[in-house]
Every structure is written in C-alpha cells, then in structure tokens.
Amino acid sequence: MTTFAPVLQLNNGVGMPALGLGVYQSPPEQTVPAVEAALREGYRLIDTAAAYGNETEVGEGLRRSDVVREEVFVTTKLWLTDYGYDEALRAFDRSLAKLALDYVDLYLLHWPVPSAFDTTVAAYEAAQKLLADGRVRAIGVCNSGTEDLTRLMERTEIVPAVNQVELHPLFIQRELREFDARFGIVTQSWSPIGGVNRYGGGADQGTDPLRSPTVVDIAEKYGKTPAQVLLRWHLEHGLSAIPKSVKEHRVKENFDVFDFALTDDEVAAVDALDGGRRGGPDPAKVRLDSFS
C-alpha cells in the first residue's frame, strides 16, 4: 500500500503535500530517474526552478510515471534576472514549455531583490496575472524575510501562499516562521537536513545536524536514520520540506517518515541546536548581478 505525505492547506484553499522531492543541483541525466523513483514511492510534490537547468527532465520524469498529472504538485521558480512584468510572463512561458505542462501548481519568485524592488513587485504582479488566468494554482516567494514580505504585501494584492527558505535545525528561523503563520503563509524548507552546510565539505558535529549527538540518539531510539529524524522534525512543526537526492535508496529513505512521531521534548531538543547561522546566501545582500 502506497503511503502519501499529509497535505497542507494553502491560504487560497489549494492543498500542497508537506514532503516533496527537490532537484536543486540534480544533474539533468539523473533527474528523470529520480523523479520517477519519487513518484513511484509516493511523493506527490516535485520542486524545480528555471535556474536549476532541469525543468525539461522533471517534465520527462512526470510523463514516464504512471501517476496522472492532476495528482502531482509541481513547483517551479522565476529567476531574478527575469524580474519585471513582461519579462516574468515570458520566463514563465519558457518554463512551462520545458516542463511540457499546461499549468504549474506553484510559481515562486526565487529571491527578493531589495536593491531593485520595483522589478520584484512587477514580477509578482505578473505571477498574480498567471494565477488569475488559471495558469498557476498558487504563487509565492523564496528566501524572503519579514521586511521583504511586508514590503511586497503592501504593494500587491495577493498574500504569498508559500515562502520557501533555508531552514534546518541549525537555522530554525523561528521569527520568520511565526510571521509567515500570522499571514497564512506556509513556510517551506530548502536544505531541510542541512545539506547546504555540507556542500563544501568539512562539516562536523557543530555544522552538520546529521552528526549531532542529539539527532543520532533520537534516530537510534526509533530505529531511523538521522535524516529521517530531521525530516520528521519539519513535519512536527507543520512545515513543508523538499529534500534533494538522485539516489533511489535515499529518495525512498527520505519518504519513510510517516510511521513514527517525535515527542514535544524531542522537538525542543532539536530546536536547541539552532545557532542562527545561515549556510546559504544572505537574501538581504542579493543583487540583480549576484547570480547572473
């Protein structure tokens, strides 16, 4: 019997699976089998982006699967060099063509750009049009802090449905999560098991939550892996998480988190690992030429 992730209700009534497959840094040739494996295992959320360079392969993985399109929640993202109203609409058309889909379930602005906020607003207004036209089912943002969200909501009509941010036990973003919840915005975690701290190598117990004695002890108690404990921690907090892997056994392992639950004390113990240290780029310092 196939197990499915719980569904989170977005602020526009659309349901989004709480756990999905991320494909950041997934090589195109490995993305198709990873998507196929995920859908076979029970995943129903696939998260990609224009900047990842694998939208075409995500679409191919969807087509090769036996799962019907309507059952899969597909997210893609607008890259910041395509911000602006007309530019965003054209970029969305390119993404949709690469995915070979008729619509996208969630369309996100990939980064806030405080130094060029007018273009950020214009891009979000384009996303609002896509929503009104039925070409996307929900819209939102990534990597946005409370000030970014406040400024955006002051100048646009639709409250973002999702804010996808770096979030893991070493960087729990409590204040931002509380802000999101106040406005009905679902917080979605990228790098949910702290992978951003391992990309460059050299991570230790203080910078790799998978090696934390606290997490290892909890994993041993439940007969689970540290990664499974961390993903369960996200679910206990009501977050959405999108772990990335192209290895079929890891894809399967990351989804095997629905047969146990953490106690309140265990959740608090993992919370206590927070050092407030970001592993990825600081959104406040992002400029239009930052990633061009």
Rank of each mutant, 00 (worst) to 15 (best):
A181V: 04
D271S: 10
Y83F: 15
G84W: 00
G280D: 12
A241R: 08
A49H: 09
Y222K: 02
V74W: 14
E29T: 13
L21P: 00
R69D: 05
R232S: 06
D265R: 14
D265W: 09
G279T: 09
N254Y: 08
F183W: 15
D289E: 13
V32Y: 12
A38F: 02
S240D: 03
E178N: 13
E236D: 12
L78P: 02
P283R: 12
P209K: 00
K252F: 12
G61Q: 09
L108N: 00
T119S: 14
A122R: 06
E154C: 11
D86N: 15
I139S: 11
F4E: 12
A161Q: 14
V72K: 00
N11K: 10
S95E: 01
Y24I: 04
E253F: 13
A37V: 11
L10A: 03
D93E: 13
L149I: 12
L273R: 05
E178D: 15
V159T: 15
V113G: 07
L39S: 10
G84C: 01
G279H: 08
A161V: 11
L80D: 10
V58Y: 11
P112H: 06
Q164W: 11
T76N: 05
G195S: 09
E178P: 10
P281R: 10
F73K: 08
D282G: 05
L108Q: 00
Q9F: 08
L19T: 00
S292W: 14
S290K: 07
V141A: 00
S95I: 04
T48M: 13
A97Y: 02
L8S: 10
V58M: 11
S65V: 06
L80A: 11
N143G: 12
P169T: 02
R40M: 15
T3W: 05
E125C: 00
A126E: 02
G200F: 12
D259Q: 04
P27F: 05
W190I: 03
L239Y: 02
H110C: 01
A261T: 14
W111P: 03
N163S: 12
T156D: 06
Q173A: 12
K247M: 05
A50I: 05
D47N: 12
L101K: 08
A181F: 06
I172F: 07
P169S: 04
A126T: 04
L78Q: 03
V186D: 01
S189E: 08
R182W: 04
L131C: 12
E87A: 15
G223M: 07
V104G: 03
I185A: 14
G223A: 09
E57K: 08
V165C: 07
L45C: 13
L231G: 03
E220Q: 14
T187K: 09
L231A: 10
S245H: 01
L152T: 03
Y85R: 07
L131P: 08
V196C: 06
V216R: 01
G61K: 11
H249T: 10
D82Q: 13
V32H: 12
C142D: 02
L101A: 09
E266F: 05
W190T: 00
V7K: 13
E55S: 01
I46R: 05
E87L: 15
L130D: 07
E87R: 15
E220F: 07
